[in-house]
Design a protein around this nucleic acid. Structure first.
Lengths: 226, 226
DNA sequence: CTTGACATTGAACAGATGTTCTGCTATTAT
DNA sequence: ATAATAGCAGAACATCTGTTCAATGTCAAG
């Protein structure tokens, strides 16, 4: 029993209203009034705006506080507002001669100074980000992984790695931590440096302990170097 | 000829109003009305709120749009909001054999896909961030700068560099782009690779064109490598 | 004490604003 | 064709809301 297609001008006007809400809020710092929406979205009567606002509220795009001027919140923004930040604790250092030391799994000091803020848009969306942690690289030992002194490495804790993933491993025979690409090849593990000028090393799987998967490397260039 | 200390209840009320503005905006998604501020900040008359709002506007804490309901913007927030993001356009690629090509200075396509989001806390605060741009590294040619294929390099455009800064330079004699630490040494330029296993190169300053200063390098490790 | 600037109150007014109602038009199912 | 429903316009109304004003209180300096 529907009359007109629900997607001719309707969708268009809804979209225009949502854009108006976004843009007005952005420009003035507060939501528009009904009449201002009408002007922005080129809708000629206030009742029409109200009409579509009700619809948008039903669809879950916005929330309204009845009777309150400019009482509109955009819940589901049209322009997917890129801008989520994620705080990752820098829990320590990573260097060749020492195993990775993750203090107090899941409970870190919440200082701003020991946090790295990373935009969620740069993180793999499918991962559960809650347990990520970061390490600061100390020394030149990770140089064959193209990772330098002072770089920040963001890791996802895991004991198992898939082929082709960059992992932080602890080699029990050498008592050393290193960053390498991981390849399991019939019984042995091939650890491939990121820098193609370096040769891969092969280890028996019994001496390779995967500490975590490298998600990202951040290098802040201060101005001192070499 | 001043009467009362300007910092007894005044400061307190101003602070309460600013807090009310912040909290209300946070809770409802739009600024409070005068009367709602009065309630939040425990001020008993609307004229008092207006009185202090004028003062706060003079002091540059807020901006008001006269005659507009809820027409208040908080400019200088009391609680410094940690979590600012900065959008940097990825304007192209950087590779050995081609000069850096910055299209349309200051006017980039505003696609979300060609943007890198970086937390302002990771950027040097003193820089004017407005003109930063990012390039994606193509090929292995930057490997002696510890920069790999696929890495994102964030640059600040400049023609002059200081000693010790990592810069992107165009070498006119070789027709090549490269990333190196920059040192001016009595007439010649020493370009020092970030990787200490590589040797520095020396060039006459006439063939070295500084394209930009490297601010940050971001490597997103997808899972494929080597 | 007097003065003057700041602080405060309460009320009133004008305009902004959300809401509703009536009526009209266009489109589509039957 | 005809009815039903969605889309639309304009006006009217009640209330929300910013603004102003007159009166009073408070406090410190002269």
């Amino acid at each position: 029993m529907m009359a007109r297609k629900k997607s001719t001008q309707l969708h268009d006007k809804q979209k225009r209203i949502l854009e108006a809400l976004d843009e007005f809020q952005d420009r003035y710092g507060y939501p528009p009034s009904i009449r201002e929406i009408a002007e922005f979205a080129q809708i000629s009567s206030t009742s029409m705006v109200d009409y579509y606002l009700r619809r948008l509220e039903e669809l879950g795009y916005i929330e309204r506080d009845g009777g309150v001027s400019r009482g509109i919140r955009v819940v589901k923004s049209l322009s997917q507002k890129v801008g989520e930040l994620f705080h990752i604790p820098v829990v320590g250092y990573i260097q060749a001669g020492e195993p990775i030391n993750i203090p107090q799994e899941g409970f870190y000091p919440f200082d701003a100074e020991t946090m790295v803020e990373v935009a969620t848009s740069l993180l793999p969306s499918h991962e559960r980000k809650s347990r990520l942690y970061a390490l600061e690289v100390k020394g030149d030992s990770m140089i064959d992984a193209m990772v330098n002194d002072g770089d920040i490495v963001i890791l996802q804790p895991t004991q198992v790695a898939n082929n082709g993933e960059m992992v932080a491993v602890w080699l029990t025979d050498e008592e050393a931590t290193t960053l390498k690409y991981y390849y399991r090849e019939n019984g042995t593990i091939r650890l491939q440096p990121a820098n193609p000028n370096y040769e891969p090393i092969r280890k028996d799987e019994s001496v390779v302990q995967v500490q975590g998967k490298v998600i990202m490397v951040i290098r802040q260039v201060g101005g001192t170097g070499a």
